[in-house]
């Protein structure tokens, strides 16, 4: 399991060999990028048991599409794009089969989350409280539209720049900024609904 970034010339050679049908040349690329893809998939999907299967599917998709890779972006970015699109589809499938956004939830569901959030409201935020807020934010993120979840994860959890996000998602910079602001506003609104501002005051 190497996982260190390969030399660009070496990487280009592996890609060229894959494109000419030599599938063994794909193995070092899997070795080099698997950790990065594991991280991005975990942050987006957050289901430890599913991550490995999803990453396998992503690498299979990448191999099937490698002929279309034309070096316009780095191989890493290209692979990230495949990973994000795959996770996006996965999240949409998950979303369609579950209760979703807080605003769309039943009253009982809302009360359940509220009781979890209120148990962490009192007092200042120590490390445990921060974990609780993390849990709460995760619950909100899990119920957010897949589009919001992807863009927020890339920016706030993966800490990627707006430029990188625009390259991965294939969107204009201005579009990324607008969507990011909209998604953040929605998160804040739902957070306030849940915590009633008490958690934020404690900060």
């Amino acid at each position: 399991m190497a996982n260190s970034r390969p030399e660009p010339s070496q990487e280009a050679e592996w890609i060229r060999r894959c494109q000419s049908g030599e599938k063994e040349a794909f193995a070092p690329l899997v070795d080099a990028y698997q950790r990065r893809i594991f991280a991005i998939v975990f942050h987006l999907v957050r289901r430890r048991n599913d991550v490995e299967d999803i990453v396998q599917e992503i690498f299979m998709k990448a191999f099937a599409a490698i002929e279309s890779y034309n070096s316009q972006s780095s191989f890493g970015t290209w692979l990230n794009r495949i990973a994000v699109n795959h996770c996006y589809d996965y999240l949409r499938r998950q979303r369609s089969s579950r209760v979703t956004y807080f605003a769309e939830m039943s009253e009982e569901g809302q009360r359940q989350i509220e009781s979890q959030s209120q148990s962490h409201e009192e007092g200042g935020l120590n490390s445990e409280d921060k974990l609780a807020v993390g849990d709460l934010v995760w619950k909100l993120l899990a119920r957010a539209p897949a589009e919001d979840r992807v863009i927020l994860t890339l920016k706030e959890i993966e800490d990627r720049s707006v430029e990188e996000i625009s390259e991965i998602l294939g969107l204009k910079l201005s579009t990324v900024k607008v969507r990011l602001h909209r998604a953040r506003k929605r998160m804040v609104r739902d957070f306030e609904k849940l915590a009633g501002g008490t958690v934020s005051h404690a900060l």
Binding site: H43, L125, K130, L131, V133, G134, D135, L136, V137, W138, L141, L152, E156, I157, R184, M187, V188, F191, E192, A195, G197, V199, S200, A202, L203
Partner: peptide, 12 residues
């Protein structure tokens, strides 16, 4: 509120 949400993201 945004600072609280941000803290949650950092924790994640």
């Amino acid at each position: 509120s945004w600072q609280a949400v941000r803290a949650g993201f950092v924790a994640l």
